[in-house]
Structures are given as structure tokens and as C-alpha cells.
């Protein structure tokens, strides 16, 4: 009798907490998203009128920022994958006794606050930094070109900030590959490229899926990189939600936008997991 109850008793406090502070807020957010301002009320006072057109209005008004969020997040994810895969591979197979040390190095930048690092990028890429004058002297960029306040800077910052989220899961699944399978592939006259395509990559797929999700999800909802490294022309949906909440006090629109963002991400993630065919995530 007691044995059957044990798991539920263990789950109870944690799930009660998650129910109150995760599920309930999401339900409440859904409710807020269809409210309208009270006629003659103060700013920030809303009543429930089940106005589902809020979603349409919010989306149409901000489709540019939505598109940008997903585009930037996609580019940052692809870049992070391109940087992380060889890095994770090198740590797993080519680093010998320095493996643990190199793994620590991947996580180490995390310990300096990510905001400090993002601001550091702003200053490195800014007019007073060393990058812009150097590139101008070599002639790679023209005198009037700047690097900060551009889409380039935002995507670069996002790629940078989410890099360890990509590298760690990739490492975890590449490290599990038995090097003998790679040798066997070579023995069977596969060249390096074929071995990678037919053996290494399929075996590391769980890491690729986990890494891309862990990068794409926070990247799509991010607004810090766009706020620090971008300009009004690089605003993402996160910036809009933030300003609706704090500056305009338009809770229903902010809620509708949050919900649309979450739904879009969940749909994309589900499609992606189906396509990539991994069930190991949960």
C-alpha cells in the first residue's frame, strides 16, 4: 500500500508548486489575452470580454518583429551548430587527458554574468573598440559602416550567448559514440566524409536535436541581445512584449503576443522533433 503511494508523495510538493506558479499563470495569461480596457477606467484596468480579435490585432501589428525573432533565432541556431559541432567533436575525440579541462572551459564564460559579456561585445564592436578601426584600416568595412546597432551584432550576440547550450548536449552524445564504429566505417572503405555522414552524424542526432532546441527556444524569446546590441530596426518580439508590459501597460496585447510566441515555438518544436525522429528528449 505504502509503496504505491511513495512516488505520488514525492511528486506532490514539487508538482503543487509547478501547478501554482507555472500552469496557473499560463491559464491566467490566456485569460488576460482576451481582455479589453474598461471604458472610462485608468490605464492598466481591463475587463474580460473574450475578444479573440486581440490575437489578430497583436499579430498583424507585430508580424515584422515575429518574423525577425524566428529568422534571427534560426540563423543563430545554425551558426551555433556550425561552431559547436567541430568543437564538441574535438573535445570528445581529440583532446585526450585535457577533456575535462576543456569541458570546464566551455562552461566557464557562463560564470561571468551574461549581461556583462553582452555589454562587453557592445563595447568591443563599438566605435571605441578595436575591431571597427582595424576593419576600417584594412578596408573590409567602409568609414561609415558600424557594427553595433545592426542585425549582425544581434545575431552574433545570440549565437555567442547560447553557444554552450549547443555544445554541451552535442558533446554528451558525440562522446557516447564508440570510436570503433568510426574505425569500422573506415575499414569498409568509407572516406572521412562518408563516415561522418553515415555514422557520426546519425549517432549524434539526439545531441543535435537537444542542442538546437536549447538554443532556438531561448533565442526566439530573447530581447536582451536586441536591446543591448541592436537598434529600433532589429526589435524582436521579446522587446515588444517587454515594452507592452512595462512602458505601455497593455497587458492583453502582451499576453496575446506571449501566447502566440509560445504556440508558434511549440508547433515548430513538435514538427522538428517528429522530423528528426528522436524521442529521447523527455
Amino acid at each position: 500500500m505504502g509503496k504505491i503511494r511513495t512516488p505520488y508523495l514525492l511528486l506532490l510538493p514539487g508538482f503543487l508548486f509547478l501547478f501554482t506558479f507555472f500552469i496557473l499563470p499560463i491559464v491566467n495569461l490566456a485569460q488576460t489575452s482576451t481582455q479589453t480596457p474598461i471604458a472610462g477606467g485608468d490605464t492598466g484596468q481591463y475587463e474580460q470580454t473574450l475578444r479573440f480579435a486581440n490575437y489578430l490585432d497583436a499579430f498583424l501589428e507585430n508580424r515584422e518583429q515575429f518574423g525577425r525573432s524566428f529568422l534571427y533565432a534560426l540563423i543563430a541556431t545554425v551558426l551555433a551548430l556550425m561552431i559547436s559541432y567541430p568543437l564538441a567533436y574535438a573535445i570528445a575525440f581529440k583532446s585526450g587527458k585535457y577533456k575535462n579541462f576543456l569541458l570546464v572551459l566551455v562552461v566557464a564564460p557562463f560564470f561571468t554574468s551574461f549581461l556583462l559579456r553582452t555589454v562587453a561585445w557592445k563595447q568591443i564592436l563599438g566605435e571605441e573598440g578595436f575591431v571597427v578601426p582595424t576593419l576600417r584600416t584594412i578596408g573590409i568595412i567602409s568609414e561609415s559602416t558600424t557594427l553595433t546597432s545592426t542585425a549582425f551584432a544581434v545575431v552574433m550576440g545570440m549565437t555567442y550567448n547560447f553557444l554552450p547550450f549547443m555544445t554541451l548536449p552535442l558533446y554528451a552524445s558525440i562522446d557516447r559514440i564508440d570510436p570503433r564504429t568510426l574505425e569500422a566505417s573506415g575499414d569498409l572503405y568509407a572516406n572521412a566524409f562518408t563516415t561522418f555522414r553515415k555514422v557520426t552524424l546519425p549517432l549524434s542526432m539526439p545531441g543535435v536535436v537537444a542542442g538546437t532546441l536549447l538554443t532556438f527556444i531561448p533565442a526566439a524569446g530573447d530581447y536582451v541581445n536586441a536591446a543591448i546590441l541592436g537598434s529600433p530596426n532589429t526589435k524582436m518580439i521579446g522587446n515588444v512584449i517587454e515594452s507592452r508590459y512595462f512602458k505601455i501597460v497593455d497587458y492583453p496585447t502582451a499576453a496575446a503576443l506571449s501566447f502566440t510566441l509560445m504556440a508558434a515555438i511549440l508547433i515548430l518544436v513538435t514538427l522538428y522533433i517528429r522530423k528528426a525522429g528522436t524521442e529521447e528528449l523527455v
Binding site: 499563470p25 495569461l29 532546441l213 531561448p218 530573447d222 530581447y223 512584449i241 508590459y245 506571449s258 510566441l261
Partner: peptide, 18 residues
């Protein structure tokens, strides 16, 4: 899994609403 798949801004905003 769900809280990890939800963007931080949605977690933050929904909790504030509550």
C-alpha cells in the same frame, strides 16, 4: 519538460500577471 520549452519571457510575464 514544459517549463524548459517555454521562452523565459512567457514564464516571466505570465507569473507577473498572476
Amino acid at each position: 519538460f514544459l517549463p524548459m520549452a517555454t521562452p523565459e519571457i512567457v514564464l516571466g510575464a505570465s507569473l507577473l500577471s498572476l
